[in-house]
Design a protein around this nucleic acid. Sequence first.
DNA 1: ATGAAAGCGCTAACAA
DNA 2: TTGTTAGCGCTTTCAT
Lengths: 332, 332
Amino acid sequence: MVTIKDLAQQLGLHHTTVSKALRDHPDIKKETSDRIKALAREMDYHPNLLAQNFKRCSSKTIGIIVPNIHVDFFSTVISAIEDVIYDAGYTIMISQSNETYEREVLGATTMLSNQVAGLIISVSKETRETPYLDSFRNAGIPVVFFDRVVDSQAAKVVVDDYRAAFDLTRYLIERDYNSIAHLGGPENVSVSVDRCRGFVDALKEHDIPVTETWIRRGGFHEADGYENTKIILQNGLLPRAVFAVNDQVALGAYRAIQKKGLRIPDDIAVAGFGNLQLAEYMVPPLTTVAQEPVKMGEACARLLLKAIGDSRSEIADKKIIIPSHLIIRDST
Amino acid sequence: MVTIKDLAQQLGLHHTTVSKALRDHPDIKKETSDRIKALAREMDYHPNLLAQNFKRCSSKTIGIIVPNIHVDFFSTVISAIEDVIYDAGYTIMISQSNETYEREVLGATTMLSNQVAGLIISVSKETRETPYLDSFRNAGIPVVFFDRVVDSQAAKVVVDDYRAAFDLTRYLIERDYNSIAHLGGPENVSVSVDRCRGFVDALKEHDIPVTETWIRRGGFHEADGYENTKIILQNGLLPRAVFAVNDQVALGAYRAIQKKGLRIPDDIAVAGFGNLQLAEYMVPPLTTVAQEPVKMGEACARLLLKAIGDSRSEIADKKIIIPSHLIIRDST
DNA sequence: ATGAAAGCGCTAACAA
DNA sequence: TTGTTAGCGCTTTCAT
């Protein structure tokens, strides 16, 4: 690897001169710096960012931790984050927790050791608290939560899950689906909890009794929706509608319902959350909540960059709510 | 940030002793190293990886460059890569080219400057050659291409696009779809070219004339499939089947065909490539080629780790072919 | 078993 | 305008 010393030697200059020239320091006269840059190109010189960052005690890298990269929602958010921070000269470093607290901590620790300039995180389903983030606070590294958040004084970017679930449920009730089951996500996960709360409160507001056996918790995947719906369908009394914590779970519900020979929405209506591309093509097309993951990613990135840019700007208690909206299709 | 010097000072030891103790160097007796480690935990010490890597002239980071993170195929591959290299103690750094050569080069340069231990890349649609990778070769940093490859002496992990397209086309012909159009991807992109070649050769093998106006190039998105199919449908003579370069494009074809009031597969059959989750739920379900992105990611990661592990193992001309298989559904 | 010295590539403060 | 010196945190080699 070619270093500034190599360049300096070639030109009979001192390496500090080269260093300054490459960064267009006004000290160096144009002619000299042109010569230096020309040689740099010729010799295929690449600055050692490791050394630069090490010196500066901070890298131009943003850490991202998510449960799973290949979940459509997360990959879209990540993509949006990258687009924004790239323009600011940053690179992303990613770690997936695979829904375990342990890997989340390890990932965060690696990020910390790598001196990332900031961290963007959506927590695993096991995570209830994030003591491991104290080290970030101590080191002055800003942290932004998104989607799945945890109660802490860090910045957050979310949709109003409570409100969206409330509105969706109200819509179902107003469509005369007066008995509704809920296929919830894992307990503790903020989005599960908030969506479930919104659901329950909407029922209460309309004086509809909350049937506990019709509120089932599970995972975020199709199989979870399938299993839980099957259980609900085993009882004699069927709900008129099912509200799933996300579209994958709704897909599982479809399978269970259709396998049982029931029709959607005639026998049971189904609503999801997230608006996957898939939702539009399900049969019947799925009523769901559109989440704007791109806007979410952009908001995360911008918020973080702001915090990195000037440490005075306190983002700690900032909470950005990205608007979501109900998409009504034929499943309800 | 706490450093080994801080720890050393606290304990009245030398920082080199601390350094050794933390890495379980046999020089240090257990008692001392226990004291050191205890203090490290207490003081929330985190090794400065930047310094470590700088010293070592290489980071425990793998660079990944893809056109777009949020494309299902890529995010799945990335996820698989992360799972494998995580176990080996590496972290991934990602850059998206957004399908431009320029950003691809910039991304690669950043990776190089960051002294990544290796690079995994799927090139943009603009990329025809990769001279920028010479620097990696010179620096002894292994590179692995996947999916969209470029003719070079670097290692590659791909599906046999030619064969898969050939087999798919032959299947269509044997189903008596004796006139077939092809919705191709961008020219130059290896997968587009190979799939198209497979298509053409299968036609030739069965003495079916290749109608140039029925071979249309475009992008990889739904809109491209829609537009190109619309154009094909404008002519009087319709093909009996359409083979799309991927499932998103096939989706666009569905829309155009169905909008025209034609039925799939009765009037026109459609086949795709990739086997998105979506494909199963399209109406009718889409015949396509399953690509095993997880296996692909794992193969990339393992190949790269091998090359990093021992520099003798020459992977330069290695080409790993991941098996794909035809999935027949109701669209054909 | 522990300590001292040197150096990785780069930058910042100061000297010439 | 250019060069000198020092040091970032860590590891390696060699001395004690």
